[in-house]
Design a protein around this nucleic acid. Structure first.
Length: 572
DNA sequence: GCCGTTTTCGGCCCGACTGTTTTCAGTCG
């Protein structure tokens, strides 16, 4: 059983307990679930060598339950909990504005057990008759259902970031805005974003709120207070704006950047030190005078630690590292010396090799890898060996014409159903390096898929495994693959795992990149760009690498051209 | 249910906003 599946069961327990009005336990279960979900190792392996109680948040009781889950694949306790309440009640809590209290209340008073019945009850005006509810609450619930029905999931970072920047710049034009920043999960560069958070510093919040609401991209206003407003943009995404005084900006930025787990941890440290931390500042508990508030550096500094980049603030050990002065030197965009995965007109790209090389040179890259698809991927106009060779010649001549950039000729080679590569070795040998990728037969079983990928990695010409889990965010689950074995093989054969920066992929994920780093497997950054504009996706790939605590030395293409060539020669 | 250089028992982050309230409960982030 996978860590995510174990965690899922614990999350479900938390939701059910919360529904029953049980205090504190839900959070205990969630904490344990989250730590299991994010473990570097499969919990089945972990159990063999260590005590489950060594996992933070897992004590006597949860350890026993996890044992039961791992042994039997299910948990009697969860079955019992489920038996006490209708299954659809959990679904109610997915509707914005409906929490555990409201869900339970509606169930007890109106016998509403699922979304369908909730909608009917609201439309028949039965909710407004309840004590504690009114016309407005009923409308709010109906609106919540509409939003729930409309929303297709979370927004991808690659699209949310530009949207956030647009709104930020719009608000920033207001004269009363002295300081402004993106905040929340967008500032932490999470791969998907629930809503966009923006923080402004100003002494005239009403004017800022006015400007915010006047943005032509705004469809409706959700809440409007003196310090907090929320709107929904025409494309459905929610944007929250907070306005604080300038000298509180640092405290507020820290607070609204989060994550929740990071903040909870930081607050308890503040409390241990005799302080109280909130969005207005760090205060002494006794007397209440301000200790720090103006900048984030001041806050973290007063708590006895270095400030860490927003991408790290996920409550994954960064606070401890900061206390010890052992924060990593995260990789930066400027460290990247070239894009290792791009496409040209020859297969399914939209630009010529010359145009791609010119754009790469304009970015200050030392090299670019042109990796068109291999022959069997017909939908992408995959190249026959003959066309591949003519592509190589074009690349050489481009190199001479454009100058100042090395064009590496490679290919994104299909890993066939049985793990063979789509070109014979004598063709692979001619390439500067080889990227292997799975684009077909996603539905193989875990054993079959793992063997397929391992066999391909055993090919001496394979340098990089592209988008190793095959997921497409919000669309397709990763294929069934034993990633632990793949990572072990990657280390053994010196194969690099790709962090494909295409917003829909972002594969490996931040957590999987962390696992790669811990195992000493190098990560190769590539955009999979099909056009010149998409070369910019490198920015998001670097951000994800930073979320994985990767340093420049963990990433293949921070190498200079000379070192890269040396590295490739050693392999092939 | 978990956890501990203030605790092995008694805590468990904290504040804004909304709606239905005469002082607060629920939700959200």
């Amino acid at each position: 059983m996978r860590n995510a599946e174990v965690a899922q069961i614990l999350y479900e327990i938390a939701d059910l307990l919360e529904l029953q009005g049980v205090e504190f336990k839900p959070n205990a279960y969630r904490k344990a679930a989250r730590n299991i979900e994010e473990m570097a190792q499969e919990i089945e392996e972990y159990r063999k060598v260590r005590d489950l109680k060594d996992i933070p948040g897992v004590g006597e009781a949860i350890a026993k339950k996890v044992e039961e889950i791992l042994k039997t694949g299910r948990l009697a306790y969860l079955d019992d909990l489920k038996a006490e309440l209708p299954a659809g009640l959990l679904q109610l809590m997915d509707v914005p504005e409906i929490g555990p209290r409201t869900a339970m209340h509606l169930y007890k008073e109106l016998h509403v057990t699922n979304l369908h019945e909730l909608k009917a009850a609201a439309q028949e005006h039965r909710i407004r008759e309840l004590k504690g509810f009114g016309e407005r609450s009923e409308e709010r619930i109906l609106n919540g259902i509409r939003v729930w029905e409309m929303r297709s999931g979370r927004m991808l970072l690659g699209y949310a970031y530009p949207a956030g920047q647009r709104v930020e710049q719009y608000v920033a034009r207001t004269a009363q805005v002295k300081l402004i920043s993106l905040a929340g999960s967008l500032r932490r560069m999470k791969e998907t974003i629930g809503d966009i958070d923006i923080l402004a510093g100003s002494t005239e919040p009403e004017r800022v709120m006015e400007a915010f609401a006047s943005n032509p991209e705004v469809m409706e206003s959700i809440v409007r207070g003196p310090t907090k407003s929320s709107v929904r943009l025409k494309d459905g995404v929610q944007v929250d704006l907070r306005v604080v005084k300038e000298d509180e900006f640092g405290a507020a930025l820290q607070y609204f950047t989060g994550s929740k787990e990071h903040n909870v941890e930081l607050r308890s440290i503040a409390s241990e030190k005799g302080y109280k931390l909130n969005e207005y500042g760090l205060f002494r508990k006794e007397g209440g005078e301000v200790v720090a508030s103006r900048t984030e550096e001041d806050i973290y500094g007063a708590l006895g630690m270095e400030i860490m980049p927003p991408e790290m603030r996920e409550g994954r050990g960064e606070i401890r590292a900061a206390q010890l002065g052992k924060l990593p030197q995260l990789v930066e965009l400027k460290d990247v010396k070239g894009d290792l995965h791009t496409h040209s007109l020859a297969s399914d790209g939209a630009a010529t090799i010359e145009e791609m090389a010119g754009a790469a040179q304009g970015k200050g890259y030392e090299y670019i890898g042109i990796s068109d698809h291999s022959e069997s991927l017909k939908v992408a106009n995959g190249l026959s060996p003959q066309r591949l060779r003519s592509n190589m010649e074009i690349a050489r001549s481009v190199e001479e014409r454009v100058g100042g950039i090395k064009v590496l000729v490679e290919a994104e080679v299909e890993i066939l159903e049985d793990g063979r590569l789509d070109y014979p070795d004598e063709v692979l040998r001619e390439l500067d390096y080889v990227i292997g990728a799975v684009h077909t037969k996603f539905n193989q079983g875990e054993g079959e898929m793992t063997e397929r990928v391992l066999r391909a990695m055993g090919n001496e010409y394979l340098t990089i495994l592209a988008h190793p889990t095959g997921r497409v965010l919000e669309q397709r689950e990763p294929y069934r693959l034993d990633l632990d074995r793949v990572m072990d093989a990657a280390r053994e054969h010196q194969v690099c795992l790709e962090l494909n920066s295409y917003p829909e992929r972002m594969d490996l994920s931040d957590l999987n990149c962390m696992r790669a780093r811990e195992r000493g497997v190098k990560v190769a950054l590539g955009t999979g760009a099909h056009s010149i504009a998409q070369l910019d996706y490198m920015f998001y790939g670097v951000a994800t690498a930073r979320r994985a605590w990767l340093e420049s030395g963990d990433v293949l293409n921070t190498m200079s051209l000379d070192r890269l060539v040396e590295f490739l020669a050693k392999r092939g």
